[in-house]
């Protein structure tokens, strides 16, 4: 549906995108994940045709976004980070205007506007001036605008920012619902949201793609063979001692009390073969095992692991940069 090949973008000398490749398939929800300033909005702006790229191509539904811009743009509904609404217009009037702007034939405009207002539940706000709407409603009006013209691809840049938890749930459900008719790419820096809605994720950091995979695969790849979560019943001290005596156990990294007699131990092993031994030792000492599983990193941890390949955290880097920029500050 959308192919992005070797896309790069310079802002002056600053390289915001360093040649990224990925695709958006038919009827899929693609999550676009990255910390602030990673290049998410830049990429989305380029796909939507707002910014031209410095290098590389974007093919939308068979049309090149720079060569056949009008055709390509007709296939796209775009909700930017700040909803592009006119504060002086009424909701319905605004949506009619956008439908016209997108070239929706006059006969279909009313039906399409009604449909998108129903979907976003803003039909009872139709006569209100957009300036008087709350942030959440403005966001919804922006969303309704993106649905007009039945675009095949929806690009949503952080669609849930500034919404309250119920509205976030509604938007999530809406995105899941939209999958039937559209391909959706949506960006976020909230991981729970991405894992709740998306099938595949593209993780981007500092203008480079660091992972493209399904959520399950990402988690599986990040599963550790050598860290074990063990929940056992029995005396805490006794079990700790028993575990430490087993050959091959490097250490116990964490102990959490779950209930009076139950504790969760996180154990680091030399290899996964020691699992059986742990089991038999505990059984022989009348400690029953409630649960034993390989430690799984959730998306949050995966994300941190992937993005923290750099030696310094972004905060440290920022401090360094400011020091370089204002060398006099230190002397004062």
């Amino acid at each position: 549906m959308v192919e992005i090949k070797n896309l790069s973008k310079y802002y002056g000398r600053n390289q915001a995108l360093k040649g990224i490749d990925f695709e958006i398939r038919d009827h899929e929800i693609l999550g676009f994940l990255g910390p602030n300033g990673a290049g998410k909005s830049t990429t989305m702006n380029i796909i939507a045709g707002y910014l031209p790229s410095t290098g590389g191509t974007v093919i939308v539904n068979g049309f090149d976004i720079t060569e056949q811009a009008a055709e390509a743009k007709k296939c796209i509904g775009y909700l930017p980070e700040i909803p592009p609404v006119y504060p002086d217009m009424r909701v319905e009037e605004y949506l009619h205007f956008v439908a016209g702007l997108k070239g929706v034939p006059k006969k279909e405009r009313r039906a399409q506007v009604e449909k998108s207002m129903d979907r976003l539940r803003i039909a009872d706000m139709r006569r209100r001036l957009i300036r008087n709407l709350s942030k959440g409603y403005k966001q919804r009006v922006g969303f309704a605008q993106a649905l007009l013209g039945n675009p095949k691809i929806l690009i949503l840049d952080e669609p849930t920012v500034g919404l309250d938890p119920t509205q976030v749930m509604e938007v999530r459900n809406l995105i899941l619902d939209l999958k039937k008719e559209h391909s959706v790419i949506f960006s976020s820096h909230i991981l729970a949201e991405v894992s709740a809605v998306c099938e595949r994720v593209v993780i981007i950091n500092k203008g480079e793609i660091i992972a493209i995979d399904t959520i399950e695969n990402l988690e599986r790849n990040m599963m550790s063979d050598t860290v074990l979560n063990l929940t056992a019943e029995g005396d805490k001290e006794k079990i700790t001692r028993l575990l430490k005596d087993i050959q091959g156990v490097i250490g116990i990294t964490e102990v959490k009390q779950i209930s009076e007699n139950r504790n969760l131990f996180q154990i680091e092993l030399e290899s996964e073969k020691i699992r059986n031994e742990i089991m038999s030792v505990l059984m022989n000492n009348q400690c029953s095992i409630v649960e034993m599983s390989l430690a799984k990193l959730n998306l949050e941890q995966v994300f941190l692991k992937l993005t923290q390949t750099q030696k310094k955290s972004s905060l440290e880097q920022l401090i360094d940069e400011t020091k370089k920029a204002n060398p006099y500050d230190q002397e004062e």
């Binding site: 045709g49 707002y50 743009k73 930017p80 592009p84 609404v85 006119y86 504060p87 070239g103």
Partner: peptide
């Protein structure tokens, strides 16, 4: 200023 330029430039209008 209002961010609506994005709407115009991403519409099929040249």
């Amino acid at each position: 200023r209002g961010g609506t330029e994005v709407l115009l430039l991403t519409s099929p209008l040249s």
